[in-house]
Amino acid sequence: MSNEAEKPNFITTSLDFLVNWGRTNSLWPFPYGTACCAIEFMSTEVGRYDLSRIGSEYVRFTPRQSDVLLVAGTISYKQAPILKRMYEQMAEPRWVIAMGACASSGGFYDCYCTVPGIDHIIPVDVYIGGCPSRPEAFFEAMFDLQKKIKDESYMKQRAERVKDQLEMIKAKTEQAKAEAREFAREKTAELKEFVTEKEQELVKKAQFWKE
């Protein structure tokens, strides 16, 4: 089944086209703003630049309802586990934009407390330069991300995921079987010991009564 789905045909490609069209035109960002880049993002979102023109209408302040994790600002080592947890809470499909110099490379904070780029923690799709980066740069990053999403194939990803899941299920069942076998072996050994003990007792009793 998985081999057939990997080959593109009319149905899968048109389904891919539809899914990608839907995804590109409703990218809901989740802003993880820790510094001045977040202020630039605010000005991108409101009237003058208006990010909702390209479909990023709602800024969702929960990772469970959003598609794009927008890391805008410096990430310190104390914050790194929080950011990672946020990324793990997001549902598939998910993309990450590193906005500004600090999120992309640590910026000028070359010291003991700053993470040198968030790609040490989570995978990043688009990087934006600037300190802070301008709204125009942010728009270009969104267009790049849209181009990237249009090249993705939903059916292919799904087939790969199903394959992975099947492999995982097989491995888990094998593990469970091995555990059950071991358990049964232990139990039979115990029972054998029990029976031999009982036999010895009976033999002893019989000898006693004989005497």
Binding site: Y77, K78, P81, I82, R85, D110, Y112, C113, V115
Partner: peptide, 27 residues
């Protein structure tokens, strides 16, 4: 300021300024 798993005191002059230490979980 530093996280709980940090070893050493970073503003001492004998601490290497670019030595980074990872934190495994949140406080």
């Amino acid at each position: 300021l530093n996280h709980v798993e940090f070893v050493g005191h970073p503003l001492r002059k004998d601490y290497p300024a670019q030595k980074r230490q990872w934190l495994s979980t949140t406080d």
